[in-house]
């Protein structure tokens, strides 16, 4: 375990105290300090995550754009966005771009600390009808993964999220534990994984709800290294 203390950095996740409490180990990335492990070895954690795991990805890069010209503007810049709303579109470098509506898309971010697509868009010339949404600070981002994920989220969300009804890449913008949330299905190879993007001010409350729902199935908190093991990266 390294000594990296998230409280020494100017950018902090709302969940950092809860992660410190369980002895998480942090690494510094371009976008902030992220919990990489919550136990001695990432491989054991990965096995736990295969069953049911929860991870905090709030400080990973994240961006969003909205406006009547936003989708066209992104397409002009080489971003692939299809016609369907509430759908994920993969880019050539595996970055995911989520189309939320006719006028909005979101880049939820990947596990590594950097995101070329986000950087490219933020430095590109902005047109009328294209407006940035401060997703990195407006929202928290958690991922729930493992075979028990659908059973667990059934305790929190009224949308049918069973794996044969909510497919890879599907997006649901709905209410989770009475909070507005965006749910994105984004499996780690054969392991089901659902991302949750919600109000950052309620991150602590949401985290507690997820922990409570998880306890029935013996889920646990995992770090980003375990997720990378599952992804095979």
């Amino acid at each position: 375990m390294t000594d990296l203390d998230p409280a020494m950095h100017i950018r902090r996740s709302p969940i950092y105290r809860k992660l410190l409490e369980i002895g998480a180990c942090f690494v510094e990335t371009e976008s902030g300090v992220v919990a990489t492990r919550t136990s001695e070895t990432a491989t054991i954690e990965a096995e736990q995550a295969r069953h049911l795991g929860l991870s905090d990805l709030t400080l990973c890069p994240r961006a969003g754009y909205k406006g009547w010209a936003a989708i066209d503007w992104a397409r002009e810049l080489g971003i692939i966005i299809g016609e369907q709303n509430n759908r994920t579109y993969s880019q050539s470098d595996s970055t995911r771009v989520v189309r939320l509506s006719d006028n909005e898309f979101l880049i939820p971010g990947e596990l590594s600390g950097s995101s070329p697509a986000i950087d490219m868009l933020s430095s590109a010339r902005r047109l009328e009808g294209v407006y940035s949404v401060p997703r990195a600070d407006n929202n928290c981002r958690f991922v729930i993964c493992g075979n028990q994920t659908p059973a667990m989220v059934a305790k929190l969300c009224g949308v049918d999220l069973r794996v044969h009804r909510f497919h890879e890449g599907n997006v649901a913008q709905t209410s989770v534990a009475r909070l507005n949330a965006i749910i994105i299905r984004s499996d780690f190879r054969d392991v089901p994984a659902y991302e949750l993007i919600a109000d950052i001010a309620s991150a602590g409350y949401m985290w507690n709800c997820l922990m409570d729902a998880m306890s029935e199935f013996g889920g646990c908190i995992v770090g980003t290294s375990a997720l990378c093991v599952l992804k095979g990266t």
Binding site: N85, N86, S101, G158, V159, A172, Q173, T174, S175
Partner: peptide, 10 residues
Amino acid sequence: PLNGPRNISE
């Protein structure tokens, strides 16, 4: 129209 059928509580 955007999200499909949902519980009215949304």
